[in-house]
């Protein structure tokens, strides 16, 4: 009896010793993991940090060292950069970008939802071929369609307007979004729509009152992607927009490099920071829906 008690005391001691070792190991491994994460994270973010820091430096200081802290912080880059070398301020270019993004994003969400709903819920003749075509355009490199597209828009007299930039998207031209919404729709059971049909709704009313509310996370993801891609799009405006007063920010940034004799890097960097802001703000505001939307849609980003 006493033997076994002694024995169990020793067992408990051993167990505690083992637990202590384990705890220590966990702490060490945690420390190592966080150190690596922090270092790698910093390396990846450093260009961005440097960009923000450098936008407050004077033009001469920028190339003096790789450090990001400005020695004499100045708003000069922002003030002068905002004025630009053209008759327009940078505000004008932001407004121009907005004029492209707003119709493009809104129309994309609406048109892609309708098209995806059609593919997901209805059987119609030629559905398979049509769907294959949509997915086919997804695989087609953008570049190869540029020239025929340019000729087409030229015929329509749309050059130097924003129409070529957003009308194709407004007609569900972005196969990726159609596909993403379609995947999301497939995960939503049909019962609710059927209940709505029995309640007297038309297919379209069922879409608006029943499907869309459940589809919101995916739709927000679509809007976000479209927002960011349009904000960053350089080639599209470069090809179709030629008047400076219609330039969006992506072209306007390039403009300041073109026209000035000596590049005012601090102005360019300052404006770049401003250009990044809308995307960042929008992303952080809707991060929750964004992640929900892409993960539920099965399109892991």
């Amino acid at each position: 009896m006493s033997d076994s008690i002694l024995h169990s005391d020793k067992a408990i001691e051993d167990a505690e010793k083992f637990l202590a070792v384990q705890r220590r190991r966990e702490k060490i491994s945690l420390a190592i993991r966080y150190t690596i994460l922090t270092v790698v994270g910093l390396i990846m973010l450093y260009p961005l940090i440097w960009l923000i820091g450098a936008s407050f430096k004077s033009n001469t200081e920028i190339f003096a060292g790789a450090g990001f802290m400005p020695a004499n912080p100045t708003m000069d880059g922002y003030v002068k950069g905002w004025e630009t070398s053209t008759p327009y301020t940078f505000g004008r270019f932001f407004w121009n970008t907005f004029l492209i993004i707003a119709p493009k994003t809104i129309c994309t969400v609406i048109s892609c939802t309708v098209v995806a709903y059609g593919f997901a819920r209805f059987d119609f003749p030629g559905k398979k071929i049509l769907f294959a075509t949509v997915i086919g355009t997804l695989l087609l490199p953008n570049i190869v369609t540029r020239i025929p597209q340019y000729l087409l828009f030229n015929e329509l007299g749309w050059l130097d307007t924003y129409l070529p930039l957003w009308v194709p998207s407004a007609l569900a031209g972005d196969a990726f979004f159609v596909f993403m919404l379609l995947q999301f729709l497939r995960s939503i059971p049909r019962d609710m729509e059927e209940a709505a049909r029995v309640d007297g709704a038309t297919s379209f009313q069922a879409l608006i009152y029943v499907v869309v509310p459940m589809l919101v996370p995916a739709m927000i993801s679509v809007a976000l992607f479209q927002f960011m891609w349009t904000m960053n799009d350089f080639l599209g405006p470069l090809i179709y927009v030629s008047s400076v007063d219609k330039f969006p920010v992506s072209l306007a940034l390039k403009l300041s490099i073109d026209t000035a004799e000596t590049f005012e890097w601090n102005r360019i960097l300052a404006m770049s920071v401003l250009t990044l802001l809308p995307s960042l703000i929008v992303f952080f505001l809707s991060q929750k829906y964004f992640v929900e939307g892409i993960s539920a849609g099965g399109v892991k980003g």
Binding site: P189, D191, M192, E194, A195, R197, D199, A201, Y209
Partner: peptide, 20 residues
């Protein structure tokens, strides 16, 4: 006739309530 015009109402197995 579309379901809404048939003078019917239906109760589904998994309720099919509108979640929102």
């Amino acid at each position: 006739l579309p379901p809404g015009d048939r003078g019917i109402a239906m109760v589904f197995q998994n309720y099919a309530l509108y979640p929102h």
